[in-house]
Every structure is written in structure tokens, then in C-alpha cells.
């Protein structure tokens, strides 16, 4: 093995904060690893636990959900529901033996381009030593 492992990451970004924050990172030409494919959702509150399981099932090595800071959700409280749901999901993932590092939630506002790049860099660094995710991956 000479080539470094490159994790595949799916990121659910809410339109109002995190996606706008990642746009700002772009406008500011901040560099970060290209491992993440963003999927824009209206609100982190719309991210069903099934989406996360589905991503792992389809071969994601890591999944990120990013929304507005608590209290700042464009839809008032979507991120609070998201936070609760995700706390439960984390336990479930833990229970079935998936490394906890593979799943992350972050709060990135529209003004935090720098933070977005940091979240991504950190996530990629944490995932690299874990190698490919096979626990929940479907066969074939």
C-alpha cells in the first residue's frame, strides 16, 4: 500500500448557515481536502437518521451533518431536533460497533468559512487512520 487512504465523506449542509459558510470558504479561496461531497438540505432538522444510515450503507467512510448554531436555525428550532435525534443515533451507531469518529455534527454559520474548512480538515484527518468503513456497507 503506497497510496494514502482517502475517505469518502457525505456532508449534509443546511442551506442557510453551513452551506452558506462553505460558500464563503470558496469565495475566500480557502483550501481544504476534496473528500467531501456536500448535499444541501434546507435545514439540519430535515436530516433523518435514515439518511445517515443510508450513507454508511452506500459506502460512506464518514458522515457530517452541519447546521446553524443552536438558537440560530433559520427555521427556529430545526437544529435542536436534529441535535437530539443525532445524539440517539450516535448511541445506536456505537452499539452496533461503528467507530464514533465516523460520524460528526458541527455548527457552522454563514460567516464561518474558516471554521468549515477546519471541520473538514479535522474530519478527514480523523478518518484516514480508520481506513474503509465496512461495518454498515452493503455487499457488492
Amino acid at each position: 500500500m503506497t497510496e494514502e487512504f482517502e475517505p469518502k465523506i457525505v456532508a449534509f449542509l443546511c442551506k442557510w448557515c453551513s452551506s452558506a459558510g462553505s460558500d464563503l470558504a470558496g469565495v475566500s479561496r480557502m483550501e481544504y481536502p476534496s473528500n467531501v461531497i456536500p448535499i444541501q438540505v434546507l435545514c439540519s432538522g430535515s436530516v433523518s437518521p435514515l439518511y445517515i444510515l443510508s450513507a454508511f450503507n452506500k459506502g460512506a467512510d464518514g458522515v457530517l451533518v452541519s447546521g446553524c448554531h443552536p438558537g440560530d436555525c433559520h427555521y427556529i428550532k430545526g437544529n435542536y431536533y436534529s441535535r437530539r435525534r443525532i445524539a440517539l443515533l450516535k448511541e445506536l451507531l456505537n452499539f452496533i460497533g461503528l467507530e464514533p469518529e465516523r460520524f460528526k455534527m458541527s455548527w457552522v454559520s454563514a460567516a464561518e468559512g474558516t471554521k468549515y474548512t477546519e471541520v473538514i480538515k479535522e474530519f478527514v484527518d480523523e478518518l484516514k487512520p480508520l481506513g474503509a468503513q465496512t461495518k454498515l456497507r452493503r455487499n457488492g
Binding site: 457525505v10 448535499i39 438540505v41 434546507l42 433523518s48 437518521p49 443510508s54 430545526g78
Partner: peptide, 30 residues
């Protein structure tokens, strides 16, 4: 916002043009 759709245990409510089916297909493609 779709919070209802993520909450429903029976997938009985979803946001037009942002349905769970669409998101699953998007995840697959990504």
C-alpha cells in the same frame, strides 16, 4: 424546513422536491 419529515416514523410526510427518496438517490450518486 423538513423537520416534520425527519420526525415521522412512517415516512408519511415529506417536503416537495426534497423527498427522502430523492435524498437517498443523491447519497448514492455522491
Amino acid at each position: 424546513c423538513g423537520t416534520c419529515s425527519a420526525t415521522c416514523l412512517r415516512a408519511a410526510i415529506s417536503v416537495k422536491n426534497s423527498t427522502p427518496y430523492q435524498v437517498h438517490e443523491m447519497i448514492n450518486a455522491s
